[in-house]
């Protein structure tokens, strides 16, 4: 096989795998995006503003908070600070995933980080673990979520009042199940069960006390501290 055919086959299989992996996520994105469109329109935002927010911020939970705070007539800086705090977990995502982006060019990286939503991060880490993370896989996955997110947003703005009960199809629980499945893909890694259980317990405690979304950053933070504490130096460093 020539080098060109190897690249060609990567390109095809990366795209196919990206679209296959993203498929179950799309079912959860549709109702979430439609509800955001409906809620923002209900709050008095115009269609162009809602679409601008979804295209440029592209972080659903924080957009709900932004809409809510905009309705309370707060100073601009406090709204921006709330969004920044809510999205702070992405710092960890990019610190971790950036190490697997060796195959990405400068502008590819710059664009990729804009598209780094929760399922994108989880699926890309899994991809890097199993084979190698290449731009075609990343952007196939990202394009599917991004376009469905914007499309369903628009549907929510236009037909918000018609949304049926998402619980009837289990859509309210689709993302937790998807993330659960992804977590288990890492079960071969060192200290897997300790990190999983300490993060989960800490998250539930924070969720019951401080509330959402702090459980993600603080609960996960406990797991990271545990992982760091259990780490042993590599042999090279030990010998030095």
């Amino acid at each position: 096989m020539t080098e060109a055919t190897v690249i060609e086959s990567h390109w095809q299989s990366d795209m196919r795998d990206g679209l296959r992996d993203v498929a179950p996520v799309l079912g959860a994105v549709v109702p979430f995006a439609a509800v955001f469109g409906a809620v923002a329109a209900e709050a008095g935002m115009g269609m162009a503003d809602i679409m601008l927010a979804s295209a440029t911020i592209y972080a659903g939970a924080s957009q709900f908070v932004m809409v809510e705070l905009m309705g309370q007539d707060l100073p601009i800086w406090s709204i921006v600070l709330a969004v920044f705090a809510l999205n702070f977990r992405h710092v960890l995502y990019s610190a971790s995933l950036g190490r697997h982006m060796g195959a990405f060019g400068f502008w590819q990286k710059a664009l990729a980080f804009h598209l780094l939503v929760d399922p994108q991060f989880a699926a890309s880490e899994m991809r890097a673990l199993k084979t190698r993370l290449r731009p075609t896989y990343y952007f196939s996955y990202a394009t599917a979520i991004y376009s469905v997110w914007l499309g369903a947003n628009l549907l929510g703005i236009l037909f918000g009042a018609l949304i049926d009960d998402p619980a009837a199809w289990g859509m309210d629980f689709l993302l937790p199940l998807y993330f659960m499945g992804l977590i288990m893909g890492f079960h071969g890694r060192g200290h897997f069960w300790v990190i999983l259980s300490t993060s989960a317990v800490a998250s539930i405690i924070v969720h019951q006390t401080l509330g959402s979304p702090w459980h993600i950053t603080l609960g996960g933070g406990v797991g990271l501290v545990v992982a760091a504490a259990l780490s042993k130096p590599k042999e090279a460093e030990a010998a030095a």
Binding site: F121, H191, A200, S203, H207, H215, G223
Partner: peptide
């Protein structure tokens, strides 16, 4: 190496915290 271990744990720790509630 402790920072490296913490970064390697990011997917499991953060996703577990996300799902636990």
């Amino acid at each position: 190496h402790r920072v490296e271990a913490a970064l390697a744990a990011v997917p499991v720790a953060i996703l577990s915290a996300l799902v636990a509630p």
